[in-house]
């Protein structure tokens, strides 16, 4: 169990590092997915530890995967649109959220 917690802590930190230091929008999304997976790992592990018969953790891990997929779909649509307009996927260059 300690191994699971350490792994997901390390993964979360890696994702956080990416989100805070990278500026390319696609890489940002990659980092967010890493963090989401760290969280899902914990959900599954605690489900196994405390409620192996109830599956609540696994249910929410599945929902988490679904939400992450939707997030990626919307996020990438945004990135593509931004790219079309500004010719770059550097998040620091895109500061205006209006026309």
């Amino acid at each position: 169990m300690t191994a699971v917690l350490v792994l997901s802590a390390v993964l979360f930190a890696i994702g956080l590092f990416g989100v805070l230091t990278r500026r390319n929008a696609i890489t940002l999304l990659v980092s967010v997915e890493v963090m989401m997976n760290a969280a899902n790992l914990n959900l599954v592990a605690f489900s196994r530890l405390y409620q192996p018969e109830l599956m609540t953790g696994q249910v929410f891990a599945i929902l988490g995967i679904g939400v992450a997929a939707c997030e990626a779909a919307v996020g990438l649509a945004l990135i593509l649109t931004i790219y079309r307009r500004y010719g770059s996927t550097d998040v620091d260059r895109v500061r205006l959220l209006r026309e």
Partner: peptide, 16 residues
């Protein structure tokens, strides 16, 4: 891209 987008939403639905 639109196809990929609609695809992923339906995939999640199918898995549920």
């Amino acid at each position: 891209y639109n196809f990929a987008l609609v695809f992923i939403v339906f995939e999640v639905e199918t898995l549920l």
